[in-house]
Design a protein around this nucleic acid. Structure first.
Length: 316
DNA sequence: ATCCTATCCTGTAGGC
DNA sequence: TGCCTACAGGATAGGA
């Protein structure tokens, strides 16, 4: 579940260690990812140099000379791994190996193959079909509460589902959505269109806070995610609700609950996350039926933005 | 138009 | 011990 902080961590590391290198060869596994990787990729990348690393939401954008950009997404289990001196042993599920002139290698590994590797013209990147519908990137262009509340105005989605929708805000996934709503004190089941401006202000603040704090710690390794050096991220012990069902809330002591929304887990504190935000106790009916699947003790493993501008200022 | 569900995929946890 | 099933979720196609 790499989300914005994990991708930004990789972007920074790639910028520091891979940008400037020239590709000698690219070897592809031939396996289909989210969509087939073009067999032309190898030919088109040969001899090209990486010029820069950008990011929008969860998409990593690697610009090359020759006017093309490598658009990548990590899906559920994707990894970018760099070795100055490639190890002797092999690794499973490596779908692209970039061999650089100096002998170093960059690998794209993706066990579950929900990731994406695709080459697009740099000049028309914002029109690329994978990127064109993305909402604003909340780290490059911090969102105001006003902007969020305008976007949510007539939405019947739960606020959790709203935050997960990449067309509205790009980069928030299942882990950080729960964390953001916990910090904002907002019940994840409340419909987005019913939240008042003050709560959107709190959510906007926590989006920025949580994502930046997670970036500082190189992201969250819950399961698959690794940095460029194959190391886990350090934000895992900062998580307040995600995967903590049954454990006491660190703010009020109430047992954290797990529910399912849109076939995805949501973790929240029934004590201090309410429909009216911090300090209110009123319980509000859920917008959609949500089953309570918390099993105590059982720890499961493992101004509104405009379109067309999304790729500007995406340096992160 | 908006929202919801099923689908893709693999490794792993849990049940028997 | 080992087989089998269920589950995890990002994005999206297609249905309601």
């Amino acid at each position: 579940m790499p989300e914005l902080p994990e991708v930004e961590t990789l972007r920074r590391l790639l910028e520091a260690h891979v940008i400037g290198r020239t590709i000698r060869a690219v070897r592809l596994s031939g396996q289909k990812l989210r969509e087939p990787v073009s067999p032309q990729l190898s030919r088109r990348l040969k001899g090209r140099r990486f010029l820069g690393a950008r990011r929008h939401g969860k998409y990593l954008l690697l610009d090359l000379d020759g006017g093309r950009t490598l658009v990548s997404h990590l899906g559920m289990s994707g990894r970018w791994l760099f070795q100055a001196r490639p190890p002797g042993e092999d690794m499973p599920h490596v779908h692209a190996r970039f061999h650089f002139m100096d002998g170093s290698q960059l690998w794209f590994q993706d066990t579950r193959r929900f990731g994406l590797l695709h080459l697009a013209p740099t000049s028309r990147l914002s029109q690329d079909r994978h990127l064109v519908d993305l909402g604003p990137d909340p780290v490059s262009n911090p969102l105001s509460g006003i902007a969020l509340s305008l976007m949510a105005k007539s939405s019947r989605l739960s606020v959790k589902a709203f935050l997960l929708d990449q067309k509205r805000v790009a980069g928030i996934g299942n882990i950080y959505a729960s964390e953001i709503l916990h910090r904002a004190g907002v019940d994840p089941r409340v419909r987005a269109g019913r939240l008042n401006a003050g709560l959107w202000e709190a959510i906007a603040r926590e989006i920025g806070f949580v994502l930046l704090e997670a970036i500082e710690r190189s992201g969250t390794t819950f399961d698959m995610y690794r940095t460029l050096w194959n190391e886990p991220g350090g934000y895992g012990d900062q998580l307040r609700v995600y995967d903590r069902s049954g454990a006491p809330c660190r703010r009020c002591g109430t047992a954290i609950r797990r529910i399912v929304q849109g076939a995805r887990s949501t973790f929240f504190c029934p004590g201090c996350q309410t429909a009216g935000g911090p300090g209110t106790r009123k319980r509000v009916p859920s917008p959609a039926p949500s089953r309570d699947l918390a099993r105590p003790g059982a720890v499961r493993r493992s101004s509104p933005p405009r379109r067309g501008q999304i790729l500007k200022n995406s340096q992160g």
